[in-house]
């Protein structure tokens, strides 16, 4: 795989419009997106977990995915960077377009996709290595060519962006596991940033954290959206309302064969979705929870 961003098909530096022009992809209804799904179905074996998801995520925005448990939020999120490939039974139908390229096309290497579209998980999962190595490793395996001091700068930069530098700058050689839960999650965010992605997926990144740590991560997300597109799954509607620009509501329904298949109900600007939802189901869900 070619490491120089200029020459790859998946060019995150290109403006979305250009990318669409190059890829020959027509813009979706709601404008050109860095990442788009088109009639995406995801299966686990024979079980259809989500059906017919079409949505477009925009640059420098935070999009939130909300919905009841089991409606397929994590499934959709994992499909966006092919993390679902790690589940042997998982299968995706339809398209996911990243800068116009269908990431499920035969000639696309999922390894490259995951480098461009990073992921932060529900439970903080730092490597059992030093804080420094936690961040440096991703760069190394992706062919980082800089000197030792370049690497130090990279690590420092990532930690600063993740608002962790001041807390760990004196103990970079200590294990990542020695940090508190909230610090570990920020370390995971720093680790994701360090490989220079342009989209970051976060699956309930705060659900294992206390309210103060949660607040720090939320502030961090707001800072990060200057440079990245962020898609976050959350079960916490206040969180979605606080941080996201646009919110997607997923619901799950029994289909005719008795399967519980999730689907996208609506995807609107966050203030619209929480004040004047288009769909009855959305309104029920948000009022039910808020009330």
């Amino acid at each position: 795989m070619n490491e120089t961003p200029e020459s790859t098909v998946l060019d995150p530096t290109a403006a979305p419009a250009t990318a669409d022009a190059v890829g020959g992809v027509e813009a979706a209804d709601d404008g050109p997106g860095v990442l788009e799904t088109r009639s995406m179905d995801v299966f686990y074996g024979d079980f259809k977990a989500v059906a017919d998801v079409s949505m477009s995520f925009t640059f420098n925005e935070i999009s939130a995915l909300i919905g009841p448990s089991g409606c397929g939020k994590s499934t959709v999120l994992r499909s966006l960077n092919r993390m679902n490939d790690l589940i042997p039974t998982a299968r995706v139908d339809g398209e996911v377009r990243y800068h116009g390229t269908n990431i499920y096309a035969g000639d696309v290497d999922p390894v490259e996709i995951r480098r461009r579209i990073g992921m932060v998980f529900q439970k903080p999962n730092p490597f059992p290595k030093s804080i420094f190595d936690n961040i440096a490793w991703g760069a190394k395996i992706n062919g980082f060519k800089g000197s030792k001091s370049d690497m130090k700068d990279l690590v420092q930069g990532a930690l600063e962006q993740a608002a962790l530098w001041d807390e760990v700058k004196d103990k970079l050689t200590e294990s990542g596991l020695s940090l508190s839960g909230g610090q570990q999650q920020r370390l995971c965010i720093a680790r994701a940033i360090a490989v220079q992605p342009d989209v970051i997926l976060m699956d309930e990144p705060c659900s294992a954290l206390d309210p103060i740590a949660t607040l720090r991560i939320e502030e961090l997300m707001l800072e990060l959206k200057e440079n990245y597109s962020i898609i976050i799954v959350t079960h916490n509607m206040q969180q979605a309302a606080r941080v996201s620009d646009r919110t997607a509501f997923f619901n799950v329904e029994l289909d005719t064969t008795g399967q519980r298949t999730g689907h996208l109900v609506e995807f609107s600007p966050t203030d619209v979705l929480f004040t004047t939802p288009k769909e009855k189901a959305t309104e029920d869900y948000i009022t039910g929870r808020f009330g």
Partner: peptide, 25 residues
């Protein structure tokens, strides 16, 4: 823990890079 494999793969490591540097140690 499979969370280590996911973390490795999620950074754009190949399967072998993940196994070699995160799983085996």
């Amino acid at each position: 823990p499979s969370s280590l494999r996911q973390a490795g793969m999620g950074l754009g490591a190949t399967k072998w890079q993940t196994v070699r540097s995160q799983v085996l140690p």
